[in-house]
């Protein structure tokens, strides 16, 4: 188990950007993408997202597992929504009736060109959001999270808490593993199955309680260490200087424009309305 946030994008073009750019880019992109329901535009957004993702140079081998899980989860979510909405489709152009291919046996949910397109857009949107979001964890140096958020306007105590969270993750993960080992040598079996969720939650008590209580009790020294170095007693500086260079500004302008265009486009064009390719309409 290795939970240490890994700086996999170290040295890449994206990692050389001012880290605020990575955060603002994601925010702009998310807000832009959720307004788009036109499949063609969504494909363009995916292209932008993956091009951006590539600039972080994150070795695929190291994050394969994360991608697999994310894609699996997106598929489930989109599928479940499609089933349960049972044919009611949002964002249909006015006056258009779904072109139905047939019905799912037993459930009776209609499957139409529109419902499939809707699901596809949802799926592609999630993929693009994941691609754009990935670099935050892997292409920001571990010691600049705090200053990044502080310079984005987060009060410095909370910005520092984000720094501290990253600092704690590897050691708490290590303590957690140690507790698992300590309980295994007491004969605790982690493989046993039981259908009853209550019993299964209770079975986690021997690992959760020591991990959590120890982490809190161990915090006392850290609190002292912070108090003794004057944390939270007045004005604070950050030793890292964040400066937006020309490229950073261009990237920000790019993502900002994306948001503006998506918003205006949603109002004056049909970009926020479902678009169904003619080719898949049943004849």
């Amino acid at each position: 188990m290795n939970f240490a946030p890994r700086y996999l994008g170290r040295g890449s073009w994206l990692a050389r950007r001012d880290p605020r750019v990575l955060v603002i880019a994601v925010v702009c992109f998310v807000l832009a993408a959720i307004q788009v329901w036109d499949l063609r535009i969504m494909l363009i957004l995916d292209l932008i997202a993956f091009a951006y993702y590539r600039t972080a140079r994150i070795p695929f081998r190291q994050v394969r597992r994360q991608w697999m899980l994310a894609i699996l989860f997106v598929s489930l979510l989109v599928f479940a929504n499609g089933i349960i909405a049972s044919g009611r489709i949002q964002r249909l152009p006015e006056g258009v009736e779904p072109h139905i291919y047939g019905y799912i046996p037993l459930l009776g949910t209609p499957v139409s060109a529109e419902s499939l397109t809707f699901a596809l857009v949802q799926f592609l949107r999630f993929l693009s959001l994941i691609a754009v979001g990935f670099p935050i964890a892997f292409a920001i140096a571990p010691d600049v999270f705090g200053v990044t958020f502080a310079r984005l306007g987060v009060p410095y105590r909370f910005a520092y808490a984000i720094d501290l969270t990253w600092r704690f993750i590897p050691s708490l993960a290590e303590d957690f593993r140690s507790t698992i080992d300590a309980q295994r040598v007491r004969g605790m079996d982690f493989t046993g199955q039981s259908r009853n969720p209550v019993a299964r939650v209770r079975r986690q008590i021997p690992v959760l309680v020591p991990t959590i209580v120890n982490a809190i009790a161990g915090a006392e020294d850290t609190i002292d260490a912070m108090d003794l170095r004057g944390f939270g007693t007045g004005e604070r500086t950050w030793f890292q200087d964040l400066v937006l260079d020309r490229t950073d500004k261009l990237v920000l302008i790019g993502f900002g424009s994306l948001l503006v265009v998506a918003t205006i486009g949603g109002l004056v064009t049909s970009s926020s309305v479902l678009w169904v390719p003619d080719a898949i309409l049943p004849r």
């Binding site: 140096a141 571990p142 010691d143 999270f145 720094d163 501290l164 990253w166 600092r167 850290t222 260490a225 912070m226 170095r229 004057g230 944390f231 939270g232 007693t233 007045g234 004005e235 604070r236 500086t237 950050w238 030793f239």
Partner: peptide, 17 residues
């Protein structure tokens, strides 16, 4: 408390502004 060596060294002076 710092995630990197520099961040740890800088912590006290940063707090004192």
């Amino acid at each position: 408390v710092g995630a990197t060596v520099e961040a740890e060294l800088a912590f006290g002076p940063e707090n004192l502004g």
